[in-house]
Amino acid sequence: RLYAVRTVAGRELDVALIIEQRVRDENIPIYSIIVPSQIRGYVIVETPAAFHAANAIQGIRYAKGVVPGVLRYDDVERLLKPEAVVETLKPG
C-alpha cells in the first residue's frame, strides 16, 4: 500500500533519507520511499499499513504526519515516469 506523508516543503529528501535509515535500523516494513518532483511537501511510503509510516516518521521535525487513505499504484507510477504530467493525488 502507498501512503502520503506530509513534510515541510524543501525537506522531502531529508525526510526520505531519515525514514530509510530508520527502516534499516529498526526493521520497519517499508519497502520503498518516493520523493515526487511534481508535488512539493510530500513523500510517498510503500508499506503494508499506515501505522508503520507513522512509526517511521515519529520525531522527525520536518515530517508533519501521514495522510489518511491509500494512494493508487497507477497514480503513483505515473509520478515515476520522467515524462509525467502534473496531477493531483487523491487519497482513497
Partner: peptide, 11 residues
C-alpha cells in the same frame, strides 16, 4: 525526484 528502493522483493 527520488525513489528509494529498500526491499525490491516486497515492493
Amino acid at each position: 525526484g527520488t525513489l528509494v528502493v529498500i526491499n525490491p522483493e516486497m515492493s
